[in-house]
Design a protein around this nucleic acid. Sequence first.
DNA 1: GTTAGGG
DNA 2: CCCTAAC
Length: 705
Amino acid sequence: MEARSKSVGARFPGYDGPYPKAMRTSRGRSDHIRRKSGEGSELPKDTCFFELLAAVAGQILQEQDGSDLNERSLLDLGAPKVSVEFGNDNSIMHDISSDDTRRPDITFHPKKEEIITMDRDPEHSTHTLQTKYDSSTHFSLDNSDPLASKSQDFKYFPNSIKATYFPRKRETPTEFSFQGSAAMACIESKLKNGTSDISLCQSEQCIPKANEGKLENMVVDRSTVLKDSSAQEIKQRHAIDMTAPFQMITDSPPLVSSGSSEETPFTSEPKSYLTSVFEPIGQDGAKRGFSSWKSSENDSNSSDSMFSKNCLTKSVHTTDIRALKLRRCTASTAKRRAMGVGYRRKRCKVEDGEASQNEIARSARKKANKFDCMLPDIETEKQLHALEGEKISSISSSSVTSSSTKLDDTNVKLSIKSFIVPELMVVLPESATVANLKKAVMDAAMNLLGGGLCVRVLLQGKKVTDELKSLRQAGISTGGDLDSLDFMLEPNSLPTPGSVEDTFLVLSHDANHPTSRYPVLSKDSEFNAASFHGGTSKEFLRTPDGCSEMQSTTASPTKEAMENQSNVLVLPAECALVLHSSQKYSDCPNGLAVVPFSQNPGGVGSNKRRMRRPFSVAEVEVLVQAVERLGTGRWRDVKQHAFPQAKHRTYVDLKWKTLVHTASIAPHQRRGEPVPQGLLDRVIQAHSYWTAQQAKHQGVEVKAL
DNA sequence: GTTAGGG
DNA sequence: CCCTAAC
């Protein structure tokens, strides 16, 4: 009837069905959701909250469906789908499973109060949401917010929720983690049947209740302050990013040297993981991200401790994701408003304490924006880094601002504040080591970055597919609605053109070396699994200089690029995606020039050799694992398996030959990033195994003749 | 297997 | 020169 629904994708391994595409812009659905809710902006903004809960509930229900995750491969879990509906009565229906009607629906009955009002300072306010979860059919929310009436000026939205499930019989608690205001539900084993209570509390220290058999202790560990006045303008932008079926690198099982299983002689079946990313991005999201950044330092201890206790899931905090947003300058709210553009997605600092710093930073940003060039000059970017110091709290906006003073100005001036970057997530089993986590993170990053990124242009939430259109034709003109213009970074699924240098995003640890062209993430010992000696995930994710940059000389638009599975990328919290000026384009008078309209930016240089891209340890790891499973010879499969997104890794140059060679030579002769000996041993093992296997097969064929 | 690039 | 990646 009147209900609006949306789907929250929850990709389970084995699920190959269609996946809802993200609505990444703040336009579109949220508009009518808001309208439908009839409650102004209140319900929809809280949507994510219920989604989070729905995700929890979904997981629990799944558990109660008789499956023991300890006993079952995640591949067996099917493909649940969580859909959320907004009804007139403001109830939200969660249809947990698309394929299992036995599962009851979960109904949320959000109340008005569940949009929590709170004090301006999120760090000093506490808020508790009591959520009761009736295991059978109902999932109702009961708000007991002590601060509900304290202030009407600010609203609080959970940004990240962690839940710990304390099963009966003193089993290991299980944690859930949800973030990005998203239904990112990750579940691990040891959930048991039973009624559960979920209690949510927004506080820095979440004291677990000792109730057994309760799902509790959900920590809304980041906070958000939203100005009521701006709430009206908030439009949620939801991004649903599928994750690639993620290959977990587990402890390598011993090599089976005699043919027990021909298909997978080396490793257990690689696990894929449920990853559901449902990330509202928007002004609220921006502020959320910002606030959470502020608080992340303070509550890092608590979250760390929670995680370290039993880190069943490692999901990136939203700030991590936010940090991926291109850090770009933001003009002042007032100015932007006065211009009447871009306010919707503008992000700005709200902390008063940083006002002076903001001013400095703002001037630096102004400088960066001086020529309305999309790519800031490096010096200014450095300046920003310096200003923002360790705490890079300026989460930039994804807004596009435009200025048009003259009616006859045919130039479209755009200032892109940031890009939407596909959200990335890594899910690991409890038994995974930190090194595994690092590898997984690396793989995700490499899978995304390895294929390059391209820019998607969205107008009013819709992908602009016809890239031959003129800006005027596309409606991207000064007369058009530039406010509805979005840019999105996507994995590049097109064959990498010759001049990859111009289209490739690279990671660099060193902000001072903006010209670095290689993904050097794994070069640093921090990211080198072999050199990791412990510590929390947070520590290990932090780069030495506290800031990683993802740099781009430029990015080129491509055709449909996101139809492939998305990747999961986790980057350090302090990591930021920064556009850097390319010499080639920096002299272009306007920002659009950096987005070449040619499908092949390489142009005449396309006959050049591809850029040299040394394999990282993580890539080697993935490759080795793939070969262990698939054998030598099925390079297409291996490629698809190990580097599904990396266009620069073709199946003909998968390094295996070189790896075998590398493994056979003395360590001091080896070049490049040192590959752990254990990995090389696996190379030797796998190589000899598959060589023998092929010989055996050939022998059989000869016999048969 | 060969070539190019780079340490 | 030789390792490595691209061809």
